[in-house]
Design a protein around this nucleic acid. Structure first.
Length: 110
DNA sequence: GTCGTGACTCGAT
DNA sequence: AATCGAGCCACGA
């Protein structure tokens, strides 16, 4: 059991057509201020996994990626568009509209 | 064992 | 509004 498992669980809870930021996920995982771990966790995950990694974007609403890995930037944008998420001319997402409103006290379900 | 880097975020200038 | 720097933890060399 690692902190990554919590991150994965949270990412899986992101509803279709919504997006979440690294910082938000980190907060839900009780990792406030450690958003980099979230990015690292998603870096470790494979596109074929059950985790909707494409619904995770940075705080600016843009698609972030390390390097030219699998062209995941385009894939992510395509997947989000299929879910109904619109991109600005600058290829940004309007977080005011599409940001996932995480359930209150998600980290303390018991 | 140390050192550097990374799908990030925030506060201050 | 945009840019710079510091902070956080895990992993690879």
């Amino acid at each position: 059991m690692t902190v990554y498992d919590d991150i994965y669980e949270i990412v899986r809870q992101i509803p279709r057509g919504k997006v979440a930021t690294y910082g938000q996920i980190a907060d839900l995982a009780q990792l406030y201020g450690k958003a980099r771990l979230v990015g690292y966790a998603l870096y470790r995950v494979d596109p074929k996994s059950d985790i909707p990694w494409h619904r995770v974007v940075n705080a600016k609403g843009e698609i972030s990626h390390s390097s030219l890995r699998y062209g995941t930037d385009y894939l992510q944008k395509a997947l989000l568009e299929e879910e109904g998420v619109e991109f600005s001319p600058e290829e940004k997402i309007n977080l005011r509209q599409y940001l996932w409103q995480a359930p209150r006290q998600a980290e303390d379900t018991h």
